[in-house]
Amino acid sequence: MPNPVLRVENLTKRYGDVEAVRGISFSVEEGEVFGLLGPNGAGKTTTIEILEGLRNADSGTVSVCGFDPQRNPDELKREIGAALQSTALPDKLRVMEALKLFASFYKRRRNPEDLLKRFGLEEKRNAFYSQLSGGQKQRLALAIALVNDPKVIFLDEPTAGLDPQVRREIYDVIEELRSDKKTIVLTTHYIEEAERLCDRVAIVDHGKVIVQGTPRELKQSSADKTRIEVRLAREEADEKLKLLEGVSDCRSLNGVYVLHCLRPPQAIVSLVKYLEAQNNELVGLEIATPSLEDVFIELTGRRLRD
């Protein structure tokens, strides 16, 4: 990569006996939205908090905007913006006061009025933090992350715990930042978020990056492009279904048979014929184009939110 603004190599971190991060490496280019996608406890937050200078790594090299977060935390903190997970502001702090307070910590700063407008918080300028809804709190967190016009923005699970409507609202805001060519590193366990917002994604599991690339690349690399999920009247052996024409693999998950197929029409025809011969019946059928979830299942054998 020509000029990465952020580079992580062989990062490790353990908490007592737990190895939270076990050799993570990736790099992010300027103007890119990079996502760390993985289940809870995969080591995403630990990684991002090491990059922000909140935690020290056990080993590995990290460079953010040319600074090592462990050695030059003060210089680093001037250059980055962050919306953390599990954080809050004082209940009785007003929206505008919060923006001005955080802006006062930096030499390079954006006009709080503009941020207020941009994040749709004008009407809430005098509201206490405790009076804001979940979505408004998150918008304020994003606005505060931008007060110093940062070179890199870190968003740790920016939509966790928000209802779908509000989540889409936050997506719009992040998409705007993306069109402004902001460099963003975000963590998420929502497939939709990673697919919609990220230029590149690293899928993280058990403290390791198991695969990375653009969402399109990842989905294409998933060899069996289409998935047919069927429910049957009677049980069938996975092994038998796997041998049908057009089917490359079959796994049953909670009574649903997931057929991975390169040629879906052939697969359906051969499946129906086979079931007729076995005196079995098709109860339900769904065809799904591959998603990052499939990539994750294929690589780990588990669902993302298990």
Partner: peptide
């Protein structure tokens, strides 16, 4: 209270 509610850590990512 500031520490327990995660308010301090928000300030930790700033130059304060």
């Amino acid at each position: 209270m500031f520490r327990e509610q995660g308010i301090l850590r928000r300030f930790h990512v700033t130059p304060a």
